[in-house]
Amino acid sequence: MAFDLIVFVVLLACGFAFGRYAENRHYRSIIQREEELRGIPAIAIRFPPIMTPRPETALVSGSVVIAEDYFKRFLFGLRSLVGGRVRSYETLVDRGRREAIIRMKQQTVDLGGSMVFNIKLETAAIASGRKGRIGAIEIHAYGTAIIPTDRAHL
């Protein structure tokens, strides 16, 4: 009983310390890369405007699987007693979504594209966070990159 409690406290402390550290580091990296990729607009418009000369298009996508930590799960457990917003999971999904969009934009840059149209975001819980199971979500962002054939015209 006492041993169980010690294990629980240690896991909680690990989750809190490492989870918070990882989250802060991830947010810093996200903000920096978002700044770098600001020149690539990604929009949810179904029909791109008519462009001359005719641009090339390519399917681009980015995805990430992100796991919850022990502390977040504990907070969720507490929150589910009273209901309401689960902030600890909101930041998790937010990070995943922004990361997926960054990866999609990065692929666009690698292909020489200038913008992304019709972006779709998809979230899937690839495993449930029940006891002894892995709680993780996958976020997939995809869209069509417009690759100008003659940069002088854009």
Binding site: C14, G15, F18
Partner: peptide
Amino acid sequence: KNIFGGELKGYTELLR
């Protein structure tokens, strides 16, 4: 990873 949080690179790769 589920204790410490963060990206599961192996899974990202697998799903891709």
